[in-house]
Amino acid sequence: MRYYFIHFCLIAQLAFTALLHAQNPTSYPNKHPSTIAFQLPETGLITEGIGYDPITQTFYISSVHERKIISYTAKNGTTDFSRPADSLWGMFGLKVDPTRRLLWGCSSALPQAKGNTPASDGHTALAAYDLKTRRLITTYPVPVDGKPHLLGDLTLSKTGTVYSTDSRSPWIYRLEAGSKVVTPFLTDSLFRSLQGLALSDDEKTLYVADYRRGLLAVTLSTKQVTCLSCAQTTDLSGIDGLYYDQNSLIAIQNRKKPYRVIRIQLAKTTSAITKVEILETDHPLSSEPTLGVVVDKQFYYIANSQWDAFDDAGKPVPNFPAQKPTILVVPLH
């Protein structure tokens, strides 16, 4: 979701990774606990977000470039979930609300999305789908104010309220349950480039990843923002996806190599970090991992988003080696 942070890799390195996978896609050193959960047959998607419906055991994967949502089940494989008539922009973070049978997604216009125009660039919205009918219910646009916006990720409260981060204009937005309008919720002097976010179990604290600063904690009742990573010697910058799991946070770091999946253990009574544990690092298939989803005691994440397949103007990079979008899974406990 940080299209302006994209780092170009050497074509030779990418080609080697693709060749290694083609020769033996499941044979990697034992030091890598992540394994392939599934792959998508279509290349050139820029796969960014992933959600999971525990009721139907269906995964949903977002595509920035093709401006769509794809569904996957072990039984039926992949199929397009959204329709061209939905007129989505590039799709980013996804979250399933299993209680209300809704799929929420962040839809944002940017050059890497096919058919993007200067007139639409910087527009963004939340999109809500009915999982029963597989139809778009409506979109909730962020009001146009002359500034560029990009809702890149979101999280849901137990009551159905949506919180979403804007990575181009540093705001957290909120769509309250039952409301029809996305409203600005909070900005702060600590905000630079907001990415993933996650609510604590008691929903008193909203944890937010800032790509430059690291990990922040927002006390929702007071809107007080605390920098949790500022007291850490461990580098917690470059966090993209962020997920709450049993008094800890699962985070994907992709700003620089080696790309990592980490667990950030939280103190039980104070807003502080007690330990940082590496769950996965430098996996051979990991070429800019982005977002993920916790399913039971496992973490599924997009390993190779392939932002580098397109330049900053949204044009395909010549001779870029096509790769199947790969979802890896790593055990959490």
Score class of each variant (00 low, 15 high):
T26L: 08
A113Q: 02
N247G: 12
T205G: 14
D308C: 05
Q13K: 09
M1I: 09
T155H: 05
Q265N: 14
L103H: 04
W171A: 08
P118K: 06
L190N: 03
S71N: 11
C9I: 10
L10P: 01
L220A: 11
D245V: 15
T205N: 15
L216K: 08
T326L: 00
L266S: 06
L151D: 07
R263F: 05
L126N: 02
S248M: 00
H7G: 09
H283D: 00
M91F: 08
A85C: 11
I61E: 11
E280L: 01
F59S: 03
T274V: 14
L242E: 05
V261K: 02
P284N: 00
Y52N: 15
I69D: 08
C106K: 02
L249T: 10
P258N: 07
C9M: 14
C230M: 05
V330L: 02
S107R: 03
L154T: 07
N319D: 13
L194M: 00
D130F: 07
G238D: 03
W307R: 12
T205H: 12
T73D: 08
G160M: 08
R192H: 12
A119I: 01
L131F: 01
Y211R: 13
T274S: 13
L236P: 06
V225F: 04
S71D: 07
Q13D: 15
N76R: 04
P25R: 00
